[in-house]
Design a protein around this nucleic acid. Structure first.
Lengths: 144, 144
DNA sequence: TTGATGTTGAGAATCGTTATCAAAAGATAC
DNA sequence: GTATCTTTTGATAACGATTCTCAACATCAA
C-alpha cells in the first residue's frame, strides 16, 4: 500500500540529501511500495516499462538503493542469488517462510525466537546487528 | 578434520555413480574437509594451486558439487553473493553467527529455536524442508 | 594395449548488478 | 521565462561468481 506519507518521506529524503525528484523515481516508488511484495529488480523493471518505456536497469537499481537508504524498502538477498525488494514494514522486523515450489513468500514473526537469537548473540560475545531467517518448505496449496 | 571414513565415503559415492577417481578430486577433498572451514571457491582454488598448479575453476566447482551430492560438504549461500563450503557435520544441523567486521563464522545450535521454527512451519500449513538462520553482529575481538 | 568413457583445463558464456559518460532534465537565481 | 549549475538518465561496457563447451587427456576393464 503506497501512502502519501511514503511519498512525502521519499521527497523529504531526496531534499535532505540534495537530490532531485523525477518522474522515473516516482514510478519506481509506486511499483515497489504498492501491491505485490518481494519483487525482483527485473519484475520492477518490467512493471515500470509499461508506464515509462525506455527506462534502464541502472535507474531501477539506483532508485532501489535510494529507497533502501530512505528506509522505505528492504532488500532481501535470496538463495537463488537474485535480490527481492519489499516495502519496509513500519519498524516491525519479520522473517520469511518460502515455498520451494511456487515461490510464495509469507512473512512471519516470532518474538520468542527473536529473544533466543539475542541470547545466542550474547552467549557468544557478539554485539547484535541484524539477522536473517528463512524457512523453506512446501505451502498448503502446493502440498495438495 | 579429514578422516579415512570421509575418503572412503567419497570413493564409494564415485563408484556408485559410475564416476572415476582422480588426483584433483582428492586434492580438493583434502582442502575442503580438513582445517579451516567456510572456504570460498576462490580460497579452495588458491589452496589446491599450491599442490596442483594448473587446476581450473571448473574442476573446483564440479568437485564441490560432487562433494555436496555425496553429503560430505555443504554449500552456504552468503549475503555477499559468494558461496562458502563447510565440512558436513555428522547429521547435526547448525546455524551461523557471522562477524560483520572480520568475517568470522561461529557455528551455533539452539534446539528451542529449532522447535519454534517447526511450529512456524506448521502454523502456516507448510511442509518443512530446511531453513537458514544467520546472525550478523560484531565479535568479541572486533568490539574492542 | 586398446577402446570406451569420464575428467580436465582454457576460455567463452551467463546473469545479476554496478560503473561510465555524454545527453537530458530538475532546481535555482535572475 | 531564461540561463546556469547540478543531478539524473539510458545505453552500453564492465564486473565477478559460477557454469558451459570442447578438444586433449586420464582412468579402468577386458
Amino acid at each position: 500500500m503506497l501512502t502519501e506519507k511514503d511519498k512525502q518521506a521519499f521527497q523529504d529524503y531526496l531534499t535532505q540529501e540534495g537530490l532531485k525528484f523525477s518522474e522515473q523515481r516516482m514510478q519506481i516508488l509506486e511499483i515497489v511500495l504498492q501491491g505485490v511484495k518481494h519483487l525482483t529488480a527485473n519484475e520492477i523493471y518490467k512493471n515500470v516499462q509499461k508506464r515509462h518505456p525506455g527506462i534502464g536497469y541502472a535507474t531501477i537499481y539506483r532508485t532501489l538503493r535510494l529507497l533502501c537508504e530512505a528506509g522505505l524498502c528492504v532488500e532481501l538477498k535470496c538463495e537463488d542469488g537474485i535480490c527481492r525488494y519489499e516495502h519496509a514494514a513500519d519498524d516491525v522486523h519479520h522473517d520469511h517462510l518460502i515455498c520451494t515450489k511456487c515461490g510464495r513468500f509469507v512473512e512471519v514473526v516470532d518474538p520468542q525466537i527473536e529473544k533466543l537469537q539475542d541470547k545466542l548473540f550474547k552467549d557468544n560475545g557478539f554485539l547484535p546487528q541484524r539477522h536473517r531467517m528463512e524457512l523453506y518448505g512446501i505451502c498448503r496449496q502446493c502440498k495438495k
